[in-house]
Design a protein around this nucleic acid. Sequence first.
DNA 1: CAGTATCCAACTAGATACTG
DNA 2: CAGTATCTAGTTGGATACTG
Lengths: 137, 137
Amino acid sequence: MATQTAADRRSAERDAYDAYLAACPTRNLLDRISDKWVTLLLCALQDGPRRYNELSRKLAGISQKMLTQTLRTLERDGLVTREVTPSVPVRVDYALTPLGTSLRATVEQLKLWAEANMDHVYLARAGYDARNESHQD
Amino acid sequence: MATQTAADRRSAERDAYDAYLAACPTRNLLDRISDKWVTLLLCALQDGPRRYNELSRKLAGISQKMLTQTLRTLERDGLVTREVTPSVPVRVDYALTPLGTSLRATVEQLKLWAEANMDHVYLARAGYDARNESHQD
DNA sequence: CAGTATCCAACTAGATACTG
DNA sequence: CAGTATCTAGTTGGATACTG
């Protein structure tokens, strides 16, 4: 009994943060990093520093607002660095921090998974829709 | 020249889907799976089938609407199965498909990353905010 | 138990125009 | 070049009430 309790306590301490809990701050962090722009930006920075306009071109269709906003959040959270070279015109380079690199490894899997399983998902949707349309009558 | 072109073509074929492109359907899929409820649900199903109310309790604070909606999307995309046992009251079990299991492996890393690096992110934010408040004057 | 249906406040994010 | 500022259409998701 005492053993059980001690084990439980140890386990609780190790898992101080638990995203299943609504009040846990990791719930918010998980929400932030679960974002397509975050994923694409971190991936776009994997081969070294990139300039603002390079990122803008690479992430086709992203608005200036979302690009700047996402980069600022990533910078504040310690995932990317922002280096300004005060030339004329000014040059700004974004790069991954070690923390950002550690997250990039994971979100890249997400991007690769989507690209690898798109066809599989298409098939699943077609099957689901076919099954559910036949229930209509 | 011919070699170059052939290599380009091969590369283009391998990367038929590219989430960097706005019009690519994987951009949408990436957006769908980049969702905290998707992550938490897939993780909650990792140890086997779970009933609707079990999931509701495990994902503290999720509304019925989001739970049902997310489960339906996951089912349609072929990531989870929904099994109805027509008892009274009815019993419904959700479980991961092989495709869902493959995605779960990745999103679990996301959840673990958030839980493991929360403190690091807190520190980064404090540093960023301190640096930027001192710029105010 | 496992949902469905509806309403709506709040947040999101694109478009647009402007700047050091 | 690398942003900022503003406006708003559209979406999201929680709350609430109801059902087989």
